[in-house]
Design a protein around this nucleic acid. Sequence first.
DNA 1: CTGTTAGCGCATTCAT
DNA 2: ATGAATGCGCTAACAG
Lengths: 360, 360
Amino acid sequence: MSVTLKDVAQAARVSVSTASRALTGTGLTSERTQQRLTRIARELGYRPNPIARGLKTGQSRLVALLVHNLTNASFQVMAEVVQARLKALNYQMLLCIGGDDAQAESDTLTTLVDHRIDGLIVVPTGKNGAQLKTLAKDVPIVCLVRRDDATDLETVLADDPQGAYLGTRHLIELGHRRVGLIVGRQDTTSGRERLSGYVRALREAGIARDDALIHAGHYVPETGASCARKLLDLPRPPTAIFVANHEATLGVLRVTAERNIAIPDDLSLLCYEDMPWFEWHRPAISIVDNGARDLANLAVDRLLHRMDKDNGNDGVREYRVGARLIKRDSCRRIDAPASAKSGKPKSSPSKSSAAKSAKV
Amino acid sequence: MSVTLKDVAQAARVSVSTASRALTGTGLTSERTQQRLTRIARELGYRPNPIARGLKTGQSRLVALLVHNLTNASFQVMAEVVQARLKALNYQMLLCIGGDDAQAESDTLTTLVDHRIDGLIVVPTGKNGAQLKTLAKDVPIVCLVRRDDATDLETVLADDPQGAYLGTRHLIELGHRRVGLIVGRQDTTSGRERLSGYVRALREAGIARDDALIHAGHYVPETGASCARKLLDLPRPPTAIFVANHEATLGVLRVTAERNIAIPDDLSLLCYEDMPWFEWHRPAISIVDNGARDLANLAVDRLLHRMDKDNGNDGVREYRVGARLIKRDSCRRIDAPASAKSGKPKSSPSKSSAAKSAKV
DNA sequence: CTGTTAGCGCATTCAT
DNA sequence: ATGAATGCGCTAACAG
């Protein structure tokens, strides 16, 4: 079927080992045979068999990325980035989707090491720490986005405390004193950290924390919808909502639409993690950018580093990729904390007539 | 490092071959040793090495999916579906992203067969037909979404002619006589077929085709924006736009927003291929569902079929997954083809008051 | 610098 | 029903 090293060797009248050395460029062959072999190999259309090579070397040229899904925009760009980076280095990406499920994660992990992957980037569920720890002895692992507290693996995290802080502070600076927060499950790193950033911004501004304004939930649109309703049904509803649970954003928008709440006129909206359509949306949605692209790149960097030299457990550390506030059009300044609006019409005719007040 | 078959054999005091037979369940061993070996293997934590096995059998338990990107919602669900299906069968998915680039596709393809993938599902660019044809001799291949005309590979397509027809007819039935079409590049299967479906619906309705209403372009949001502008700047702009170029949808929405064109009051909008946020959007966006999930499932089915028995080139055929019209809220009935509207204000209060004018 | 030998872990042929 | 032997394609000692 396909030409093997043996074929090349025979054609060149050398031994297989010489052929191997020449083609792998170990520098242990004469310049001449090196070039000759290379040429012959090319002519014959020789392609080394990674399987055979892998059996010998214990390497597979396979690197796995384990994420929860491909619905989350951050995971999408991470997958794209990782795959692009790896391809450039002649690695193939094994993309696995764990659904944030402990069992699925566990199964996948064992299968992956079975396949002798050369490296792994994983968004851990946090429930298979022991297993991860064990596997880490055999294969370089980098955790991404979430930390697995039961391990001491190299980890690349978003700076969620900072991101949530920046976002919240932004809203406060715009005059909002009642900022609703819809955040992720508190058993996840990001969920907890974003809450903490929010709390800190409040504290710094001397605003009392009001737990009625804080809702944590699963990473699904429905969470956004139900939490938004709860917030808006409050006797004194928030003037701004910070949706720090990416997936929940859709649900929140749905509710504001249902209730004819104009953004940003009636309510300021700030979301976490960018999505392609956020900036095309009307109004363009302001966000706290978690830096998905940079997170992925850094994770790859770190993984390659550990794969390269066997940097054992030395220098295992945690990295943070800073968050950035990207102001678009979904947050507005408010003066009067509540009560009647001054409402001068805004330049945006299709919007609620109350628009203008936003500006001042 | 890890326990090998040899270890198991030794522990069981049998030969490696017996161990192999027992564990692979060839039925060529006594029931007793079979069970005994299984038990011992489990106790020892034996995991077969796919690399070694692959070297022998020529199989890798690896199946590749080659798509253009992960931005397109259809590709996202396809990746998720393929990966889920394969995982259940103990295959790993190699996800490759070709960017709709001929060179990248070509490179990727060779790398994949190097890795001895057991099967391939590919959304072809259409520019590497010869190569695909060659590879198909070595590995089962199923084309997805696009056909590569230079090959005779098993292909799973969306029923784009039907989908575009259904969508266009729907708009016509709502009273629209001037339906703008923003469609994909005409050098792609789907681009051509969607145009043809549109044309057919027009013809059946006795509406003359107006090329000023038809725009084809690359699969990017910018296409949608520029094409939408051209359409809306027409002396007699369309009363409905059918965005049959998925990626272009964002651009179209941007323009309608910029211009304060209310949907569906001023303009009906119908899109192709679903996205999670379409139904959360306000107004919820009506779509022609290409059936991404079913497409992927069928592709996997066909691939498995060919992988299973070596069904050579027998029964190579093309499959179509029917499209479905999903009516939501972005299309409305119009009565007067042109002129002043009878304009009953719609239930959508937050929309522009200027809405009407766009109509004429 | 090159050829010979050995073996990675496993499946499979051929004996028995 | 089982063991011994062979080789998948390649790399890596070990000699020369």
